[in-house]
Design a protein around this nucleic acid. Structure first.
Lengths: 327, 327
DNA sequence: ATGAAAGCGCTAACAC
DNA sequence: GTGTTAGCGCTTTCAT
């Protein structure tokens, strides 16, 4: 069995409260006593049982993170940010993989509720009513989803699209396809919003395609459609799709920097895996994770600043070139 | 505040023990009583506080998982397996990102120890003594590391290398380079072992290069060395490195399926990101995560089967071809 | 089949 | 500055 506070108390010849204080409010115990307590605790390898502590304080020191898919590099980056920030605050993260299923999502939030101080819900697939219900059972911070009254961390994808469209427009592209991801995606709607606003202003015609699955295969599928519509550039929902597009274009003999420009989202370059210099809109995923945990830890969050917007940035590489007719 | 067992008891007009039993040993309470209790619990949205439960039962229902880097697709796949298996067993996973730092690793194991039923330590960077110490403070299952007396899940990379070497040898390759990753990697040592055993048997000369950082950049660096040594094929420590090699070879004008064959490990195809048909040794990462949690949950594990070996498999794609001199 | 009560490891009044 | 004590929400004897 693990070593308890009582054994430390006995060893240091003090009461349990003194031991407790030595750990939680050190300045309240005599330096000499504290030294002795800490010393004994060290020797015994004592570490306070956080569950027991939580039971009385009401604060668990745990923060929950729910992602639709851990294996998706987008979310693992978010997760990394959460874990890093949590550790700084000496908190621990509870992870749940919702397997892209809204029902599982709701379920795990319920299961976690009691054992965490708050939950970061990433790109939740739930409907509004569910989300509002969940926000009632535990402090929530939404990532990539915006619900009235619920704190959230948002990435400015609309602006990312604007940057991309501006860039393409400046190069001379006049018809660009947008390959949508899942219809329920908040980020997807934002991008569409950005697209519709930016396209006219930059004299480009937006061809809206989709929805497609946000996967490599989805990109393959989308590429054929884009080709059929005679665009000179495509904006893919994410890097995975962009990769699929690239692959399909290659297979159909369409030279990518020359005949068609491709822009992706969710830059995964961090893993060094961007296989060709694919132009992308960089989403600050790790920063978003940090920010979300941050809001959870910051008590005042709920009252004042309910939304945290993170900027996105277009990273231009060699795969965007002027269309053939302009060159 | 959350709804407690007392409120349910009051609502259902029974004692708390009955409520408790209705949840933990349903067959011990009268069907009618149980129905009423569950009904009230449902209405109130009651969910037992697992921390409190753990305090008395000694079992927390939590599984700790420590990875060197969540953002590494290899580990996020493992993590996914862990999360999935944990959920099946109605357990929750505690995640810690050790940031590739052995000290942090030891630290988080200590911090987690009390609040979990066991810990999965992935590719631990610690030295043997540390690991043995950690095994004493919490039930541990090692992944990708083998320590006497500590349960572990291992992937048969040596056999993977054997398959690769056999394949290359059969195609006519006579000199193949092995690009090592971090010197402390257990998997790396295993691969080397497999290589040294398989090379002579297949009439191929193994050129051992490295160590290199297990990254894209590491691959770039390694490619030049491999080129200088006049090999016709390379075995890269992992896919990231393999990608780096590919990239560098392309930059130096070496045609990849034709002038040089490249084989990677840690197949990341699951994310649809294998950019070119790179031949790889598939590591069953998700299965490994499942297996690890499985061993933690299975009480008997510690006594009987201390090691679980998972098979690896060579996935041949078009990038392995006979060397020029054979064609 | 059910209730009463003890206690898991800890913190937070409340004494001294 | 330190000790005593009463719970936190739950399970688990031990009665009944």
């Amino acid at each position: 069995m693990a070593v308890t506070i009582h054994e430390v108390a006995r060893g240091a010849e003090v009461s349990v409260s003194t031991v407790s204080r030595a750990f939680t409010v050190p300045e309240m115990v005599h330096p000499e006593t504290r030294r002795r307590v800490l010393q004994v605790a060290g020797e015994l390898g004592y570490q306070p049982n956080r569950a027991a502590r939580g039971l009385v304080t009401g604060r668990t020191g745990n923060i929950g993170v729910v992602v639709p898919d851990v294996a998706n590099p987008f979310f693992s980056a978010v997760l990394k940010g959460c874990a890093a920030r949590a550790r700084e605050a000496r908190h621990v993260v509870f992870l749940a993989d919702a397997a892209e299923d809204p029902r599982v999502e709701a379920e795990v939030v319920g299961a976690m509720a009691k054992q965490v101080d708050g939950i970061v819900l990433c790109s939740p697939r739930e409907d509004l009513a569910q989300l509002e219900r969940l926000a009632g059972i535990a402090p929530l911070v939404l990532l990539n989803r915006d619900v009235e009254g619920v704190p959230s961390v948002l990435m400015d994808s609309a602006d990312g699209v604007r940057q991309a469209v501006e860039h393409l427009g400046a190069l001379g592209h006049r018809r660009v396809a947008h390959l949508a991801g899942p219809a329920t995606s908040w980020a997807g709607k934002e991008r569409l919003r950005g697209l519709r606003a930016a396209a006219p202003a930059n004299d480009v015609e937006a061809v809206e395609l989709g929805p497609f699955p946000p996967t490599f295969q989805g990109g393959v599928q989308a590429a054929d459609l884009a080709l059929a519509r005679g665009v000179t550039a495509v904006l893919a929902f994410n890097d995975l799709m962009a990769l699929g597009v690239l692959s399909r274009l290659a297979a159909r003999g369409v030279a990518v920097p020359r005949d068609m420009s491709v822009v992706g989202f969710d830059d995964i370059e961090m893993s060094g895996m961007t296989p060709e210099p694919l132009t992308t809109v960089r989403m600050p995923m790790e920063a978003a994770g940090r920010a979300a945990v941050d809001m959870l830890l910051d008590e005042q969050t709920t009252e004042s600043e309910l939304q945290r917007w993170l900027p996105t940035q277009l990273i231009v590489r060699s795969t965007t070139t002027p269309p053939a007719e302009v060159r």
